[in-house]
Computed example of a mutant assay.
Amino acid sequence: MLRLAMMAAVCALAACGLPRSGPSKSEIYAGSVERGGDAHIIYVNNHVTRTANFAPSYGFSRAFQAASAVGADEIRSGDVLGIAVWENVDDGLLASLGASSTQLQQIQVDSSGNIFVPYAGTIRAAGSTPDRLRQTITDRLSSQTPDPQVTVTRVAGDGATVSVIGKVMSQGVYPIERPTRTLSAMLARAGGVSIEPEVAVVTVKRGNEAGKVSMTELWSSPSNDIALRPGDIVLVEEDQRSFTALGALGGQTRVPLGNETINAIEAIAMVGGLASSLADPTGVFVLRDEPESVASQVLGQPVYGTQRMAYVLDLTRPNGLFLARDFLIRDGDTVYVTEAPYVQWQKTLSAITGSASTADSLSSIGE
């Protein structure tokens, strides 16, 4: 009697409490939209691979790409100027006795865009070029000293700067100068990226807008090498795109994607393949939140809002491996493999036989 009671208890426990790696195939199906759940169960076929397969890429908007390069000679507030004046008299307005030229102290353009030059007064400098400013100062001084000769140079172009931060060799605030007017040139000015270029992502923040591009896309497409603007923030970081592998696989982990495009077969192989003693090859799921436009095409009917999709890959079908090879994995996907039905039976039988042995031992002790 004791043995039968214990075996009955074990059977009841096995039905609801045996350890496992996750939900069974039938339990996932029970959560489908057709059965009152909130996930669409979709068997992958050629139509699905065509409509659901796209690899979102980074890139800059038209506004970023259409922005013209900053004029390297344009003067801005914050720039430091060097001004020299030559006069054709021995005792000039600015020159000391016996000297024919005056090198004015380096002058910084103030926040209003103005500078002050002795005897020429306050002059608007921002928005001008050194040559135009030179002419303006010359005109102002001509009425006070005969035939003045003026030179104007930008000593430091700190009025047009870009902040470069993140995974670069040398973070800092860099001026936009003639050699550093584009994104790639500014990254080179900062010493290049300090991580593997294949996993590096560059974000440019401009006002309330932001654009993002991978280093490989920056190299491969000239349109991504955008012109920088004053005040831009350039951030370099490691690509965070990934998928998660769970269930009856060789490993259960979060797998970085980087800039790679991989399919379901490659995703399974990256974590050690199917666990041969556990996995159900008819129950390979790719769980994904699908955008409205893609979900409508996959389902063949209009839907509204993001949809939860459970794509089913049956690797035992004649074309199952081909379909899995053609089905692309995206950022945020969960690849889940269910356990084969017999695995639970094995666990149940193991629990029963093990407990039966325990019952025999208890019975012998009781005698």
Rank of each mutant, 00 (worst) to 15 (best):
D280Q: 01
Y174V: 03
G59P: 07
Q307V: 01
R35Q: 13
A156C: 03
P197T: 02
V70S: 01
D225L: 06
G273R: 08
G113P: 04
T253V: 01
G211A: 01
S32E: 04
R325T: 07
R50Q: 14
R20M: 00
G231D: 00
G211F: 11
T358G: 04
L13H: 09
K205N: 13
L97C: 03
V193G: 11
A267W: 00
S223I: 04
S111V: 06
V109D: 00
E34R: 11
T316Q: 00
S296T: 12
Q108R: 00
Y342Q: 11
Y342V: 14
G166E: 08
A99S: 03
I195V: 05
A12R: 14
A67N: 10
T49N: 15
E177N: 05
G300V: 06
F327R: 04
M7H: 10
S364M: 03
M169W: 14
V152Q: 04
E87F: 10
S242P: 10
Q103V: 14
V286E: 00
G192S: 02
T338V: 08
I75P: 05
V255N: 04
Q144M: 12
Y29H: 13
S355M: 05
V335K: 11
A267Y: 13
R254V: 14
N224R: 07
S242A: 01
G92M: 12
V193H: 14
S214T: 07
T316Y: 06
I165D: 02
V193W: 07
D90W: 14
A248F: 09
V10A: 03
L287K: 04
V33A: 02
F64N: 14
A248Y: 14
V213F: 02
S26A: 13
S220L: 00
S293E: 15
H40N: 02
R134M: 00
R254T: 05
S21A: 09
Y311N: 07
Y174W: 08
A12L: 08
T145E: 13
A8D: 06
V234E: 12
A52N: 02
V85R: 01
Y29C: 09
C11W: 09
V85M: 14
V85G: 12
I233G: 10
P175D: 11
G121P: 11
V234D: 02
Q135Y: 06
D333P: 15
V70W: 12
T153M: 06
M1P: 03
G121Q: 11
I329K: 15
V202S: 15
T138I: 00
A15T: 10
T102E: 00
G366S: 15
G59H: 14
L183C: 12
S293L: 15
M309F: 03
T151C: 09
D90E: 09
A5D: 05
G300E: 08
S293C: 02
V80L: 12
T138S: 01
M1K: 07
I165E: 13
R35N: 13
I28T: 01
D38L: 06
G22T: 00
T180Q: 07
I176C: 13
L81F: 13
G172V: 04
V162T: 00
E87C: 05
D139K: 13
F54G: 11
L94V: 05
L218H: 02
E177V: 09
N263G: 07
T253S: 14
F64T: 07
G92Y: 07
